[in-house]
């Protein structure tokens, strides 16, 4: 039984480490800010889920497990808010994303009109 738990921990945490490393690599490699946000989001979700899941398997069933669960819950609740604030601030600051191929002309003009609607949305945020 112990052996099974150990093996499950190894597998879970090794996959988690793989995703953490990919996150760092993606942060370095992606061409512009908007795509880097996606790479950063990976560490917040699946990597933390797998690593804390592996730790929970090691800890047995106790208060420690509850604390691990709470950390994952905090990360899942707070990270989208921080990411959204970052993306929105970037967009308002006027940084244009690099689109290649798939985003055609229509998408580009749409994002132009978005800029025109900016004062409107900051007002709707205030209430």
């Amino acid at each position: 039984m112990d052996l099974v738990l150990d093996i499950a921990t190894w597998i879970s945490m090794l996959i988690g480490c793989f995703f953490v490393l990919i996150t760092g690599y993606g942060l370095l490699k992606f061409p512009d800010l908007y795509t880097r946000i996606h790479a950063g989001g990976m560490a917040d979700t699946l990597a933390s889920f797998l690593i804390f899941g592996g730790l929970a398997l090691q800890s047995g069933f106790s208060l420690v497990t509850a604390k691990l669960f709470f950390i994952v819950a905090f990360l899942f609740l707070t990270s989208p808010t921080a990411t959204y604030a970052l993306a929105q601030a970037t967009f308002v600051a006027g940084l244009k994303p690099k689109l290649d191929g798939f985003g055609e002309e229509a998408d580009n003009t749409e994002s132009e009109t978005e800029d025109g609607a900016k004062p409107n949305n900051s007002e709707s945020k205030s209430d």
């Binding site: 996606h38 989001g41 979700t45 989208p80 993306a87 949305n121």
Partner: peptide, 26 residues
């Protein structure tokens, strides 16, 4: 809904106003 989109890697909510949502997808 917006937080679910952001939490799913590969899509990020950039803006949210009235009934429209502006999404950046990878």
């Amino acid at each position: 809904y917006a937080n679910s989109i952001t939490l799913t890697p590969g899509t990020v909510t950039v803006d949210l106003y009235d009934e429209n949502i502006l999404v950046h997808a990878l």
